[in-house]
Design a protein around this nucleic acid. Structure first.
Lengths: 356, 356
DNA sequence: CTGAAAGCGCTTACAG
DNA sequence: CTGAAAGCGCTTACAG
């Protein structure tokens, strides 16, 4: 029993200042367990409709919302997953996040995003305290576009620890966790075939210095498509993931003795750099040189002429990946998934110039 | 005392399967409270160094990580704040998020992002369960680019409830919560002055149909700058926030009887639409018509010629806003802040054509 | 310098 | 149909 009587200010009883299930119970004239049952929707056959109504009215009157921390502590689960992406500033990951968050919401989960310090490409300073997001206790992790080893290290050294259920997106299949990918190989195959059909044989490749599965897959698919055709050749230029650096790299390609008639870029951002290089050298797209991108971001239709590229289903990758992770949490190991991309032919590709 | 002895599987004792402070205590041969003290860094003067070492070793050996749910329940605070943005697919908000998350991490807070269903502009389907993010209990809210009333409604109807500490970004000052803004008025003033100095008098305005403070402020600042100069006139076209719609709207402006010599667009995305319209009408930028943007997104340097625009400090808005919110949580009401933008003159502006 | 105890707000067997 | 009780894993006075 309290030695000095109940405190005068009821809010002082709760650190959060918010009403609790006990307050609701008191107002409704029932026990706290009954309130809990009603709120969880587990009352049918256990609590009378009359009581249910009383509880609901009391809850509404007090503006009651269950304390998630208490709920999580009791349940041992948080219904929260972490999404690790290289950079939120890239619209591809914005769309991926949206898809993931929507799929999560449908199953009553929430997602915390974490732009990874593994930093696929951009040289940004990592967070002061990486994985601060892990304040939020986590039920699982969805990680995009990074090597499993880097992620595993990240999780163990600074993160919520190893052993959390994990699904990888846009990452190499067969390395451990289930994966959900875009079928970049099929996309690149279609793109390269499109250029071959137009008559191109001499290719320039703009690839980022980022060493991840997705870019390796693009490279391999491009090479494989070329292998089947005689008389093809290709030169590759590596570049950091910016428009400016890509332009510099493309310039080197264009200045070669036997310059390519098509610039195949591993991303729309790099293609924008290729556009700048072509313009610098006075080359018209597509009359003098064809250029292709990958991803189909906003800039693909902003550049002039509009860019032939491969549309990657970022939103669907996020949604499918989240579903896979939640299945995993439910104890079903999901199959690896590969979602079709789509070749989008616009105005940046044409037959090579006759004189070339 | 347990009636049937301790369970055989230690993991079964904890729903999370993770070691607890009790496990650490047992291994280190101390009490659980001592473990807690050591972990919180509150041991100096209370626990011997020898014991501290033992606790740290035991923690490391078990891979102990404190259970956040328990911590939050006990403390009544979550060290987590919600960031509400219109859309993560817009790079502006990606950068803003990064700034906010970094500032939060520095003070040991984490941030949950929530793309608002209030949807300033894009017609995207709202989440199945708006504010599912509120699973994570919240200490405060940082909301960007929306009206206070919409947000308040959102918080009360589907969210964590009213009364949470709140700071608004890129929103109207003086409506209640503290605000952190870009000084868009100064930016637009500098931009308009730049065009006036070049000799422009007939302006076309491309403004989004989004009804928020930031666009109203841009409009007002533009008008105010024009008011001081005789012989100026302006026509405004409203458009949805896409390149395509902006192009259509710009076309209408260009087809007027007395067409403008400068197209002042409220965002770089709209400016990209203006570029398309100019090209459609065979107008060269900047020789025949000047075009300006706002924000300085990636596309500003991707378009050709590169776009004269106003750079908004998205990252700093996020960081400053987060600091303000954390100050608020500490009990200090922060001052409203207005961060300077910067006029970036590139190649899309020039004097009006002489014959015009 | 260290430990036993209370309690944050829930959920869920268990009794009745 | 309803309630009393245990316990999730912490933090923090309070004793000693």
């Amino acid at each position: 029993m309290p030695p000095t009587g109940p405190p005068a200010n009821p809010a002082a009883r709760h650190p959060t200042g918010r009403p609790t299930a006990r307050d609701v119970a008191k107002l409704a004239g029932v026990s706290q367990s009954t309130v809990s049952l009603v709120h969880a929707g587990k009352w049918p056959g256990r609590v009378s409709e009359r009581t249910v109504r009383a509880v609901n009215e009391a809850s509404a009157a007090l503006g009651y919302r269950p304390n998630q921390a208490a709920r999580q502590l009791r349940l041992g689960a948080t219904r929260t997953v972490l999404l690790v992406v290289p950079a939120l500033s890239n619209p591809f990951f914005g769309a991926l996040h949206t898809g993931a968050a929507e799929a999560a919401a449908r199953r009553d989960f929430s997602v915390v995003v974490f732009p990874s310090p593994v930093e696929a490409g951009t040289e940004r300073a990592p967070f002061a305290s990486p994985f601060a997001a892990a304040h939020t206790a986590l039920d699982g992790v969805l990680a995009s576009s990074m090597a499993y080893e880097s992620l595993a290290e990240l999780l163990t050294t600074t993160g919520p620890g190893p052993g959390l259920p994990l699904v990888m997106l846009d990452s190499e299949p067969g390395t451990g966790p289930p994966t959900v990918n875009a079928d970049v190989a099929a996309g690149m195959h279609a793109l390269t075939t499109h250029l071959l059909d137009l008559g191109h044989r001499n290719f320039g490749r703009l690839v980022p210095t980022i060493d991840t599965w997705t870019f390796a897959a693009r490279e391999n698919a491009h090479r494989a498509a070329l292998d089947g055709v005689s008389g093809t050749r290709g030169t590759t230029a590596r570049t950091r993931f910016t428009v400016h650096d890509a332009a510099v790299a493309a310039l080197a390609l264009l200045d070669a003795a036997d310059p390519p008639t098509a610039l195949v870029c591993d991303d729309d951002v790099l293609a924008a750099g290729a556009y700048k290089a072509a313009r610098t050298r006075g080359l018209r797209i597509p009359e003098d040189i064809s250029v292709t991108g990958f991803d189909d971001l906003l800039i693909a239709t902003v550049v002039e002429p509009e860019l032939t590229t491969v549309r990657l289903p970022a939103h669907r990758i996020g949604a499918t990946g989240m579903s896979a992770l939640l299945d995993l949490l439910d104890g079903h190991r999901p199959d690896d998934a590969s979602l079709a991309g789509e070749l989008v032919v616009r105005a940046s590709t044409a037959p090579p110039p006759p004189a070339a």
